[in-house]
Nucleic acid binder design. Structure first.
Lengths: 339, 339
DNA sequence: CCAGTTTTTGGGAGCGCTCTCAAAGTCATT
DNA sequence: AATGACTTTGAGAGCGCTCCCAAAAACTGG
């Protein structure tokens, strides 16, 4: 059915070994022979059998993207698609395949971990959105599977990761609000069992401490990175009369906008809103959302490239990459009015 | 480093063959032996090497999800995440792995096709959102790779696919508008080089012909399933004074809503809007969008299950599955006002 | 033109598994 | 106790590739 090395060898009038050398671009093959072999390969459409190859090389050319269960909701916003785009881009460039593991339940998690890690069919993994204390990272280390995290882990010792600059991003957003004259600034945080949630809250606190000095605990409400969560959080914030709100994600900002609209309040006249992510929808919502742009696709590409580099060139000192972010000023922060 | 069958055999005091039989749940092993072997496997955490296995079985346990390049934009809306969720769910249940192929450029397409199909590392494929005349389907057939399409192909002969009922969905949406008394009903279609785009337009035409009889070509504008495309299409529609608009996707409906808002028109008072998909955001936009709900996750699950069934039980007559859709009435169609 | 050196080539082993087939073991029946 | 039928077990081959090593071929310089 499918061609083998041996058959190509026969067709080209050389040995199996020579064909193998040609395919793997190894030296010590006469130019003329090399060309002849390539011609046969091209004409027959031969592709080496990857199972056979990886049986001997102990490498599969497959990397996994693992998305633990807790983030079902996250998966409903365009963050993951963009991340995946970035990752697949890098995979395509470097001839790796991407396997996707979306874990819906705890049982699946239990079942998948051993299978994936010990069956040796992944060369490495990218882990997105794990929570603090997630045992996944420990398992990966125990099984010696190279991996890169998207998002800072709780304890980064010996671990490579790629993340946006969450602290600075939040700091910039809140500083902007302070500069516009708002004082009672609330925040809808991300889940505080994630480092993203923690870091963006930290940026909020930093800005407030530095430029204003007063923290009102009533103005800090925990959200969950969903639209409904943002909506609920805004409702809890409203009684405390915030002049402005920093939402730790655009999706939550959309929920907040809806809550404000339903309460008959105008944005930014009654309450200013700033988000984080700069999703495509941020530009087209009403009013257009001022937000912190993070390079999601590039995060994915970088994570994949760090991993692939480790796979191709052996272990390196762990790399901690923080990508810079940028405040995109639209109208939801009330920039026109206040200036 | 990693354990092999032979080592497990030695530990359990049996032969390689017996361990293999136990692992693959084959008959003709004494109960007592079977248990002893399982205990050793559990204690050692042994997992069979998949490369070695698939070298002899000619199966990898991997299915691919292929997303051709044209749909970059689509990937920015939650359709694909939901589809992927459905697919991974089925994969997890049936012990298959999912490999993701997102093709960004034509070159990647050229490069990937042979590699993926001939290297035999996919048992089968799910193809999403291919255009009419896409050579991918032809390649799949030529390479005898079992596959299932998400969305009806142009010529369904011999091809299995899963799709929502696009024609009926559009028909229902437009009939609803007609029943509410609107007469000048426009539509923003999907790309007309896709069957989805064609079918939803067909439903629009069917409803109009049946209940109204008059088709105004000026009220039919082609969109591209993006927010910006919906916005642009609405701008082209406005001069022809539609009373209502059926957008072939929610994302385009959002663009249309924005165009109307910017034009100072009220929805639904000046123009009613109906979408298609029922994305999460449809419930929370302003005004909440009346739309056709399609079971995206279930589409993914079904597609994966049809494929896996073919892989596990051999070829079957091609299956054509059309999932029913449901009109979700919110306020953007002006239901309260007209009743 | 030959010994010595370097480049090119081919054959064999083996990666870890499944599968076939024959040998060994078990059981019932005469 | 011996025969036949069936169940259980193990040894061997082979899947298609890479890698090692030895053989062959092609170059050197004297």
């Amino acid at each position: 059915m499918s061609l083998t090395l041996e058959q190509i060898a026969k067709l080209a009038g050389v040995s199996r070994s020579t064909v193998s050398r040609v395919i793997n671009d190894q030296p010590n093959v006469r130019q003329e022979v090399r060309e002849r072999v390539w011609r046969v390969i091209r004409e027959t459409g031969y592709q080496p059998n990857l199972a056979a190859r990886s049986l001997v090389t102990r490498r599969t050319g497959v990397i996994g993207l693992v998305i633990p269960r807790a983030v079902q909701s996250l998966f409903a916003d365009p963050f993951f698609p963009q991340l995946i785009q970035g990752i697949t881009q890098a995979c395509n460039t470097h001839d790796y395949m991407l396997a996707l593991f979306v874990l819906h339940t705890k049982e699946e998690e239990q079942k998948l971990y051993p299978r994936v890690m010990r069956a040796r069919l992944l060369d490495g993994a990218i882990v997105a959105a794990s929570e603090i204390g997630d045992p996944l990272v420990r398992h990966l280390i125990e099984n010696r599977l190279p991996f890169v995290l998207v998002g800072r882990p709780d304890d980064p010792t010996g671990i490579s990761f790629v993340q946006p600059d969450n602290v600075i991003g939040a700091y910039t957003a809140v500083s902007h609000l302070l500069r516009l004259g708002y004082r009672r600034i609330g925040t809808i945080t991300g889940p505080l069992n994630t480092t993203v949630g923690l870091d963006r809250r930290q940026g909020y606190l930093d800005a407030l401490r530095e430029r204003h000095g007063v923290i009102d605990e009533n103005l800090i409400v925990e959200g969950d990175f969903t639209e409904a969560g943002g909506h609920a959080a805004m409702l809890r914030l409203l009684p405390h009369r915030p002049e402005a709100v920093f939402a730790a994600s655009d999706i939550m900002a959309f929920g907040a906008l809806r809550a404000l609209r339903e309460a008959g309040l105008s944005v930014p006249d009654d309450v200013a809103v700033v988000g984080f992510d700069d999703l495509p929808a941020a530009a087209s919502c009403d009013p257009p959302l001022t937000t912190v742009r993070q390079p999601i696709r590039r995060t994915g590409t970088q994570a994949a490239e760090v991993l692939i580099d480790i796979l191709n060139n052996g272990p390196t000192p762990p790399r901690h990459i923080t990508l810079s972010v940028e405040l995109v000023i639209r109208s939801s922060c009330g920039v026109e009015r206040k200036r």
